[in-house]
């Protein structure tokens, strides 16, 4: 089997709660807010933040308090 047709071994992470910012500076702005930062477990990249799985509602509420109007992907 050629590489093009081989199945690629991967690990799947399902039902992950994330925030994705359009630019790194936006992610910085979000992380500068302490009440939101404490709900973030890790920064997976410059623009993607891993949110605590059971804090989704709180994170959305914090984003709205910051004046953000995030698109919410359910």
């Amino acid at each position: 089997m050629t590489r093009a047709h081989a199945r690629v071994p991967v690990k799947l992470h399902r039902n992950v709660t994330l925030i994705r910012a359009s630019e790194p500076i936006v992610a910085e702005e979000l992380m500068a807010r302490r009440s939101l930062a404490r709900l973030v477990l890790a920064r997976l990249s410059d623009t993607v933040l891993l949110v605590k799985p059971d804090e989704a509602d709180a994170a959305v509420a914090e984003l709205k308090k910051m004046g953000q109007t995030p698109r919410i992907a359910r």
Binding site: V8, V16, S22, T69
Partner: peptide, 27 residues
């Protein structure tokens, strides 16, 4: 306002596919 909304996307239940290497992911 509509364009502002894409500044931040909140994923309640996204899927992340993790590859063994960056090469595999980029491919």
């Amino acid at each position: 306002w509509a364009s502002h909304r894409e500044r931040v996307v909140f994923y309640e239940a996204a899927t992340l596919i993790e590859f063994d290497s960056r090469r595999d992911r980029d491919h």
